[in-house]
Every structure is written in structure tokens, then in C-alpha cells.
């Protein structure tokens, strides 16, 4: 049983106005096969949590720990964390000119597994995942994210999630900017990965919308850099109806 454990995580970033504390002691435990939704208003630190777990150099860890099956992730490099089983589906994936999707995926798969995938099985897996995500075969020869629409970029992220088979994935606003058809396709992909590999998911979102398709086991409300409230799926529904106002008021007072 794999466990991703975040304890008292404190993270800051450098801004023009100096160092700014964003995460102020986050505690979260995600078990294998569990889906945790992280919801919260803009600026509450949701994306910072995602990037800090992945190891983006812009975010400085001031304290706390992130362990995967007891192994500390915070002193590992970005690629070591990925090879240990962490995955981040990004909100704004960058373009990599001159690097084809197929070359990129094969290189990543080889790095994660420590050996090149067997050609036939790999092509088959690639084909079936792309078909399921309604991605045309021509995608393979296109440069990574270059000229992709918003929806194509998100599908490409989920394609990687399916093929790289991480233990835990952080999905950073994967639902934002998607029309309902694309949202369903992307959600199906996430659910497939979960079924096939027992993936644990941290689903960061601003809206309840994706939670109709990817059912959360737990919902955590993020406010001012920490978890302000947690509960079951019913909490998401309540947030949709009431908004985040009551949290913002209490945090302002407190």
C-alpha cells in the first residue's frame, strides 16, 4: 500500500517585494487509489503545493516533509521524484520545439523504467491510450505542445499520466479551459489510470465540475496556505453552492 504523506509543509517564493510565504504548514495523506480534491480560492497556494511537490526550483521549502512510502522527496531532484513515482499534470505545459511527442514519450518512459520499452508493446500502449483520449496519430510526430490547443495540451498531459504509470499524480487545474466533451475525455483518462495502476490522485481544482467525472474520496479546502477544512464529496457540493466567502472572512479575521 503506497502512501504519499505531506507534513507541515512550508513553502516560500521570491517576489519583487521580497520573500513571500505561501504554504504555512500543510498536512495531507494520500493513500494508494485514493482521490483527494484540493479546492480553494485563487491565491490560496494550491498550485504552489503542486509545484513544491514536483520540485520546481522557484519554490523554496522552508520546512516540513513530503514522503513517498517513507522516503523523503524534498531532498531529491525533479527527475528523481518522477522516477520515484510522482507525476504533475501541469496547468500550462511548455512547448519543446524540435522534440516530437513520440520521442519525448519514449525518452520519458525509458527514464522512468530504467530501460527502453519493448517496441511492440510500447506502440500498442501508445496507440490505445491515444485512441482513448481521441488524439489523432499525427500527434506523435508533432513537437511537444507546440501549436497545441488548450484541450490538446491537457490530453497530452493525461496521455503521459497513462503511459508513465506513476504512483501518485498531482493534477493542477487540469479541468480549466476545457469544454464538456474534452473534460469527459480527460476525466475518463484519469479514471482509467486509477483503475489500471491504483493511482493516488491530488486533484487541484477551482470548480466542482470535474468532480462529477472524477469522484473524490476526500475534499480539502485550501485557504491562505493551509487546509482550512476537510470532508467527503459533499463538501465540494456545499462549496459550489456557497463559494469560498466564509473561509475568506474567517481567515481575514484570524
Amino acid at each position: 500500500m503506497s502512501v504519499l504523506k505531506i507534513e507541515d509543509l512550508q513553502v516560500s517564493v521570491e517576489t519583487e517585494q521580497g520573500t513571500k510565504q505561501i504554504l504555512r504548514g500543510v498536512d495531507l495523506t494520500v493513500g494508494e487509489g485514493e482521490t483527494h480534491a484540493i479546492m480553494g480560492p485563487n491565491g490560496s497556494g494550491k498550485s504552489t503545493l503542486a509545484y513544491a511537490i514536483a520540485g520546481h526550483p522557484k519554490y523554496h521549502v522552508e520546512g516540513g516533509s513530503v514522503t513517498l512510502d517513507g522516503v523523503e522527496m524534498l531532498d531529491k531532484t525533479v527527475d528523481e521524484r518522477a522516477r520515484a513515482g510522482l507525476f504533475l499534470a501541469m496547468q500550462y505545459p511548455v512547448e519543446i520545439p524540435g522534440v516530437s511527442v513520440s520521442n519525448f514519450l519514449r525518452t520519458a518512459k525509458t527514464a522512468i523504467d530504467g530501460e527502453a520499452p519493448a517496441i511492440r508493446g510500447w506502440i500498442k500502449d501508445l496507440d490505445s491510450s491515444m485512441t482513448a483520449l481521441r488524439m489523432d496519430k499525427s500527434f506523435r510526430e508533432r513537437n511537444v505542445n507546440e501549436g497545441f490547443s488548450g484541450g490538446e495540451k491537457k490530453r497530452n498531459e493525461i496521455l503521459q499520466l497513462e503511459l508513465l504509470k506513476p504512483k501518485f499524480a498531482v493534477l493542477d487545474e487540469t479541468d480549466s479551459g476545457l469544454d464538456v466533451d474534452a473534460l469527459k475525455i480527460v476525466s475518463e483518462g484519469v479514471n482509467r489510470a486509477k483503475e489500471n495502476t491504483g493511482l493516488g490522485i491530488l486533484l487541484i481544482t477551482h470548480y466542482n465540475r470535474i468532480l462529477r467525472y472524477v469522484k473524490p474520496d476526500f475534499v480539502h479546502v485550501f485557504v491562505a496556505g493551509r487546509v482550512a477544512e476537510q470532508g467527503g464529496p459533499e463538501l465540494a457540493v456545499r462549496l459550489e453552492n456557497e463559494g469560498y466567502d466564509r473561509f475568506l472572512e474567517s481567515s481575514n479575521v484570524g
Binding site: 520540485g55 520546481h56 531532484t77 525533479v78 518522477a82 504533475l88 505545459p93 503521459q160
Partner: peptide, 9 residues
């Protein structure tokens, strides 16, 4: 960062 986050050194 993007490439490294996919396990590539």
C-alpha cells in the same frame, strides 16, 4: 523542469 518532471535527467 517539464522534461525533468517526466523522469528525464
Amino acid at each position: 523542469f517539464y522534461l525533468q518532471s517526466r523522469g528525464i535527467s
